[in-house]
Amino acid sequence: MLSTVIEVASNIFFLIGILFVFVGMVGLLRLPDVYNRLHATTKIATLGAFGVMIAITVKTGFSTMGLKAIMVGIFLILTAPVAAHIIARAAHRSGTKLWTGSVADEYAEDCAAKKDELNCDPDKKL
């Protein structure tokens, strides 16, 4: 009885995780520019991968695999936003324009106010 419950719960977590990863990938294709696409990959893909890790832990309990899955989940939550931040920053500094429908870019304004040519004027870089 208990093993059935564990099996079902683990499969539900697994399905939710896979579903979120799938939606994240659809977002990667549909959203307009690099910054909006990062929204999809950081948040949704993180939750999706986290769901898969929970499914593994529920299924195998506190075994070698289950404990490692917990650690992988924690490391994902810690590293995904850092990767997103550094990709967005690199994209902005190398001159990737925001999507034409964007309504504000205070980063570029502050950059220009500082006359920080290397970092915010892509034509003059390096």
Partner: peptide, 29 residues
Amino acid sequence: LLIEITKASVQMARIILSPRMDIRPGIVA
């Protein structure tokens, strides 16, 4: 944090799967 991540994912999923993507992105300080 966990509650916010779940909320964020559901909200993003709704934006992504809506047929007319009605977004107004931008960078604010």
